[in-house]
Structures are given as C-alpha cells and as structure tokens.
Design a protein around this nucleic acid. Sequence first.
DNA 1: CAGCTGACAAAGA
DNA 2: ATCTTTGCCAGCT
Length: 112
Amino acid sequence: MTIKKNNFFNLVYQVVRLIPKGRVSTYGAVAAYLGAKSGARTVGYAMNASHTVPNVPAHRVVNRLGLLTGKNHFESPQKMQKLLENEGVRVINDKVVDFEAIFWDPSEELCL
DNA sequence: CAGCTGACAAAGA
DNA sequence: ATCTTTGCCAGCT
C-alpha cells in the first residue's frame, strides 16, 4: 500500500492516524516530526486531501493554539467539534480545552 | 507554462 | 511587546 501518493502527504496521514483517541495534535508537531518544521502549512494542506484517505482523524489535528481552524473544511463545521467531544475532548468557542494536557506529540510519544 | 493559493508556524523588525 | 514577512509542498487557475 501503501504509498499511493507522495511521501509527505502519506507520512502526515500515518502520523495523524496514530493519534490516540481523546488526544489532539498540531500541524507544526506533525510537520516537525516529518522534518519540515516550517512545513506546517503543507501538513494542513495534506489534511485537506485527507478526504481521499480513510481513517484520517483530521478532527484531532488543530493549530498550535488549539483552535479548530480546519473545522470549516469538514463535512460540517460542527462535525469536528462533535467528534472531539465524542472522544472526550472538550471544545469551547472552537478551541480545545486543556489543549496542552491532551496534546499528543509524535516526536515525544513515538520517539520517546 | 508560470504563478497563486492554502486547515500553520517561527523569525525578523 | 506587537506586527510583518518568509518558508513549506502540492494542487489549481
């Protein structure tokens, strides 16, 4: 499988899929894990294409401020928050509560 | 064919 | 301290 698209996108999908339930990650964290610390933008763009890939919980990926910036790109903006709340993540005003507490960093969780 | 845009982030002024 | 500009990769116009 494998890899059907370019590595960068695929790597992003892989990492996002590894995000545990009830946790959230950031574009920058994934980008940094992939080696593109400044490529957070690219990660976000990969999420945009995540619709083409199954099992990619893009709702668990937010910006470094914990804001659900990408909710607007979901099937429904409320779907993202709904999914997060369904997993135990509290979202208020489109922002993740205790974001730092539930923040999941691949560089530390996987590489530790 | 060439340039712009886009779910971000960090550094420079 | 706040605001502005550049970097990133891929997909579109």
